[in-house]
Write a protein that binds this DNA or RNA. Structure first.
Lengths: 165, 165
DNA sequence: GGCTGAATTGACAATCGTTTTCAATTAAAA
DNA sequence: TTTTAATTGAAAACGATTGTCAATTCAGCC
């Protein structure tokens, strides 16, 4: 009856408090619709994962989702979490951010576009929007006669907390 | 006398042909200087790795470097390649790009920074520089008290030629 | 409500890229 | 040349992720 919880026993960097991101509460019906839209069956586990993603902090690792869901559903396996996150990432329902060799971080794909500022030491992610940068990107594209479809802008640096350590 | 060559036997995706990138030939003395600048000893292996990086295509994986160097130095171990690439990446002598869960890719850091504008239809890549965007990025980082180390800016769109087809 | 078949699950092994370990070797300072 | 500290190759270890497979659960049908 051993439960394997990888990387849990070892001391890990505590997650720095992230700016709380206000999100509208989502009712269970919406989750069910999302799952069915993906052509998947509605299960307790998937509902729990979606609830966790929508309720907690953004940009969580699969491990963190597993641990959070585990509180309510101690029998869930981490393979289930990984599988579902991957499925959702494929369908663009969640956005996957990978950095260096660190574990991937996930967020429910936001309706509103933003870019990321990532700490290369602790992995903390800060979201930002810059209409000015967007505009300049359009300008660059226009100069080369490209019609822009999308872009990836990831800034990397050292967060205030890690700078003091 | 077994030689372990991970991931070599398995069939892998062939690398898409990359535009040839013209680079100036580098003489051995330069490599030695680079290595000494890093505070490291000059060894055959390190010279071979640098030669390989400078001669071949850009954006290679550690595995590819290992295989290339292996032709001339069959006794080299992949740990040596990984170690040296990491050391160089730390010192910014090579640039490490990690994408998805794929193996990291390395290139000798180009002297002049640029970003990419890529055609999603034909794959054509246009390099561009925008000091204005760079400046705004610094501003964003400053707002969040991050010390910026680097960034990834990739614009995707449809090139003029593909628009007319 | 039960019945049935396909999808999903949990446990765990396997895999991947990468890093560490350690005894043997080698570069370079003396 | 001798010394000594860095470097090496081989192999094991590592952490994140994926695959396997028998057991369970969902959803459509009666």
């Amino acid at each position: 009856m051993e439960m394997i919880v990888p990387s849990l026993a070892k001391g890990r960097l505590p997650l720095e408090p992230e700016k709380l991101i206000r999100r509208e509460p989502v009712d269970p019906g919406t989750f069910k619709r999302m799952i069915r839209q993906m052509g998947l069956k509605v299960t307790q586990q998937r509902m729990a994962i979606l609830e966790s993603l929508s309720a907690g902090r953004a940009h969580v690792t699969a491990q963190e989702v597993y641990e959070a869901v585990n509180v309510k559903y101690p029998e869930i396996g981490f393979a289930t979490v990984y599988r579902f996150l991957r499925k959702m990432a494929e369908q663009k329902l969640v956005t996957e951010v990978r950095m260096g060799g660190l574990p991937a971080r996930y967020e429910l794909t936001p309706r509103r576009h933003h870019d990321h500022l990532t700490c290369v030491q602790c992995g903390q992610i800060v979201e930002f929007e810059s209409q000015q940068i967007e505009t300049l990107q359009e300008l660059v594209a226009k100069e080369h006669n490209f019609r822009l479809t999308h872009h990836v802008l990831e800034l990397y640096g050292i967060c205030p907390r890690c700078q003091t350590e």
